[in-house]
């Protein structure tokens, strides 16, 4: 094989993926950037051109900034809950010697078989005024009147954790499952207790999985709009809801495009910083 052919081979092999990324990601994003400089006419049609009005509005209006911060705060809280709640089952499944390990893994991915919207809506039947939880509490005399569990920020975070927990569990599981058991045996033989062995060996080696799961949970929760729509109250909108409203309700595609770019850039910046701190290369190792 000639040197030239050898050099070209990776590009040839990569060309389908590069083509897909170019046409399905780069070109649409380019269109969105162009759209963000257009204007919406009174009738709803676009006025092509180079106008900075949408960008001025996005950066000068505290409304967008506040909702963005609120979105990031909700995403952080969701990610922390996912990490706390996801680590234990992932550790259990990975360390388990049971013959039903495959079944446990199947149970982990079972929620993906049901529509995300249906899973989110199921909370209405559990937490609603006449839902299962309120009925049970009333039955046992713990409360006299139904408690308002739904349509607030807590319900939104709960719905997001429910949606994203499997992503965290699977990432942490892969990471823990890949740890060489001899390392644990070595730490124990050197006198470490079970907890010390976990703290000094298992936890540090599982951090790439935790970091990968955290990144996925954060980005997915920051970009959601279905959960606040179903489980949130009037004030519980997230940034993606503003994009949806600008594009669908207000027919203001240029403003919606500017808002989309803002969310994309903010999340991209966070991923970049995250890469500096945690190292995406390390995270990639958690996938084997």
């Amino acid at each position: 094989m000639s040197d030239q052919a050898y050099t070209a081979r990776p590009w040839i092999l990569l060309s389908p993926a590069l083509g897909a990324v170019t046409f399905l990601l780069a070109v649409p994003v380019l269109f969105i950037i162009i759209y963000s400089f257009w204007l919406r006419s009174a009738a709803g049609a676009e006025i092509p051109g180079f106008f900075l009005d949408n960008w001025k509005e996005v950066f000068s209006d505290a409304f967008y900034r506040d909702i963005l911060f609120s979105t990031l705060r909700i995403a952080v809280i969701t990610t922390v809950f996912c990490a706390l709640l996801g680590y234990v089952p992932a550790y259990f499944v990975a360390m388990s010697q049971t013959q039903f390990k495959a079944l446990l893994l199947l149970l982990l991915i079972l929620p993906f078989w049901i529509s995300y919207i249906i899973r989110t809506m199921s909370w209405i039947n559990i937490l609603g005024a006449s839902g299962a939880l309120n009925r049970t509490l009333i039955y046992f005399g713990l409360i006299a009147e139904p408690v308002q569990f739904l349509y607030n920020e807590g319900a939104v975070i709960l719905g997001l954790v429910h949606f994203l927990l499997p992503f965290m569990v699977l990432n942490v599981f892969v990471s823990i499952d890949g740890i060489d058991r001899n390392l644990l045996d070595a730490s124990r033989s050197l006198g470490a207790s079970g907890f010390q062995s976990f703290r000094e060996v298992t936890l540090p080696l599982s951090l790439p999985g935790l970091a990968a799961g955290g990144l996925l949970c954060f980005v997915l929760s920051a970009g959601t709009y279905i959960t606040p729509l179903i489980l949130g109250g009037p004030r519980d909108a997230m940034f993606a809801n503003l994009v949806f409203e600008a594009i669908i309700t207000q027919l203001n595609w240029p403003l919606g495009s500017a808002l989309s770019i803002v969310l994309l850039v903010v999340l991209g910046a966070i991923v970049t910083v995250y890469n500096r701190l945690a190292g995406l290369g390390q995270i990639a190792k958690s996938f084997g």
């Binding site: 919406r40 009174a42 009738a43 709803g44 409304f63 909702i67 009037p234 004030r235 909108a237 503003l242 409203e245 309700t249 207000q250 203001n252």
Partner: peptide, 19 residues
């Protein structure tokens, strides 16, 4: 209503969120 649609729909979005 169409004459006021652009302003009112945008303002409502803010008012609904606590502004």
């Amino acid at each position: 209503w169409n004459g006021n649609e652009a302003d009112w729909s945008k303002t409502y979005s803010r008012v609904e969120r606590g502004y």
